[in-house]
Design a protein around this nucleic acid. Sequence first.
DNA 1: GTCTCACTGATACCAGGTCTCATAACCATG
DNA 2: CATGGTTATGAGACCTGGTATCAGTGAGAC
Lengths: 142, 142
Amino acid sequence: MSELESVIRQLEALDHRITPSRVAVIAAVLAQSGHFSVETIVHQARGVGRATVFRTMRLLTELDIVCRVLLEDASLHYRVSRRGHHHHLVCVSCGNVQDLDECAVSDLVRELAAATEYEIEGHWLEFYGRCAACRSSVALTT
Amino acid sequence: MSELESVIRQLEALDHRITPSRVAVIAAVLAQSGHFSVETIVHQARGVGRATVFRTMRLLTELDIVCRVLLEDASLHYRVSRRGHHHHLVCVSCGNVQDLDECAVSDLVRELAAATEYEIEGHWLEFYGRCAACRSSVALTT
DNA sequence: GTCTCACTGATACCAGGTCTCATAACCATG
DNA sequence: CATGGTTATGAGACCTGGTATCAGTGAGAC
Ligand SMILES: [Mn+2]
Ligand SMILES: [Mn+2]
Ligand SMILES: [Zn+2]
Ligand SMILES: [Zn+2]
């Protein structure tokens, strides 16, 4: 079963209708290699309305098929998610994304909950830096 | 010396000009109690142009007079910052913000740098939840 | 007081995203 | 299959947050 079929099964299982527009958006999403903006999908899923692309992205986010990637300037990208809850290390130079294996703050969430009496429901955690490749190319040009 | 004067001194020290517009924006910012959007300041600093408000907010961010508060939906707010680098715990119900004392991920940044060969330059970290007050009011209404 | 350059604000513009609503079509059911 | 109810679509208006342009102003060094 292809990845596309697998996503379609998930939608069916949750009583969402399988429409050509949705399939086109999902196919475009699955074809991305790194992180991407919604606009990229709007361009690549030709003929699908802008609103539908945004609606489908929301669906895919809720189903955990994509994850949100927050860039340093607070703009929102997406990325195909092949695991559960996790965070990212983004190269600010080439855009490469490293998925981090586990949530580094789950312990902290418990501590915070105890210390502050907040019931903690969510968090954002993203790291920015330069990957080894980008660092060495900078070294060469300076 | 008032907080306003203190900020003005900081601007002077860095060779920024003290203009009525800047003073109005800074005064409006310092009058905020929690986190706020730029739009709030646009409304409250009457007569100051939109662009100038945005420019001044950028200045204040660079000078660490305000810090950026990222909401759960990735929208950007600001908050008067009375300390160095830190993170936030935001109540998604009433908007109350708790400043967290220290950066909880500075150790992690070092570990990550070693493990991934990235040079890590920055991060986003924000927590969302419900404060004690909001939790008890929910308990009452259910 | 003069001069210069940083700053301003009106305005146009852009990006990202939502709302509306008439139309289309998916798919459960018979 | 044929039908029907309900879900999804897409054109376009609209909204929010933010930047670019540029002629005009005024802060403050001298
Ligand atoms: Mn996490
Ligand atoms: Mn930190
Ligand atoms: Zn890189
Ligand atoms: Zn609260």
